[in-house]
Design a protein around this nucleic acid. Structure first.
Length: 244
DNA sequence: ATGCGGACCTGTTAGC
DNA sequence: TGCTAACAGGTCCGCA
């Protein structure tokens, strides 16, 4: 371990705990990764700049390499995170009972994420629908880029109060969320600068972006210039005529 | 309970 | 050209 100060301190005890344990498998919940070991789970989050990949044995650790898992076949699983928004925690007991995972909303590609759910969940809420969709307690996996895209494609204004959107419009939001996330996954994600997937390739979804990063450019549906506002310190781009 | 703003961190880029 | 400031991103936390 080189840099324990990630989002939360990486437990110093890992160096004593982990050796000798088998990795039984991996799971994902939202953007959290879980590795099941003999005595507990290793919880990992890649933040926005993190990666977890196999590196050649003996390869020197760089400035942003924070944790190496030395496997018994000689392989090295390396956790790297330049911006240190990521996290590494050790959980014992039921990992899904941990406060970080316990209160997470449904997976956006699961059946429990549907218009009824969003409709009921949003009643009485005055938050802008974009913030609502980006709230991991409502639904996981929708970050800033995809929230912008989803709302554009479903014709919903990002500043509209979540609780004042009809059920039928949430049908469209859900459909577009599935479409956008599905397509992004198939295309390896969205590379803005240097992101590469597990295969070392960049994500190609950037070419599909309708609004994100296009403020001031013409809307692809109506031609009117796209607007940009700051919402919760996040760049929000939308078409004032297509999104209501 | 809800909603808002602040914090974390650093590589990149825009602006002087 | 060099330096500084702003920015991007996910998500938790604290305060009103």
């Amino acid at each position: 371990m080189r840099q324990p100060a990630l989002r939360w301190p990486v437990p110093a005890a890992l160096a004593d705990l982990l050796p000798g344990q088998y990795i039984h498998g991996g799971q994902r919940r939202g953007k959290y990764l879980l590795l099941a070991l003999d005595d507990g789970h290793l919880l990992l989050h890649l933040g926005m700049s993190g990666s977890l990949r196999m590196v050649a044995p003996g390869q020197a650790a760089g400035l942003h390499d924070h944790l190496d898992l030395l496997l018994d076949d000689g392989g090295v699983l390396r956790f790297t995170d330049p911006r240190r928004f990521g996290a590494v925690l050790w959980l014992t007991g039921d990992p899904f009972a941990h406060p970080l995972l316990r209160d997470l909303g449904p997976e956006p590609l699961s059946e429990s994420f549907d218009a009824d759910y969003l409709y009921h969940r949003s009643r009485g809420r005055r938050v802008p629908v974009k913030s609502f969709l980006m709230d991991s307690h409502v639904v996981v996996g929708i970050g800033n880029i995809y929230a912008n895209e989803i709302l554009f494609l479903s014709g919903v204004h990002p500043l509209r109060a979540a609780g004042r959107i009809a059920r039928s419009r949430y049908e469209s939001v859900v459909a577009m969320a599935r479409a956008v996330l599905g397509a992004a996954i198939r295309q390896g994600g969205t590379t803005l600068r240097d992101f590469v997937g597990g295969d070392g390739k960049p994500g190609y979804f950037r070419q599909q972006l309708q609004v994100y990063g296009r403020a001031g450019e013409p809307c692809k549906k109506c031609g009117r210039l796209l607007q940009e506002v700051r919402l919760g310190q996040r760049t929000t781009v939308y078409c004032a005529s297509c999104q209501r």
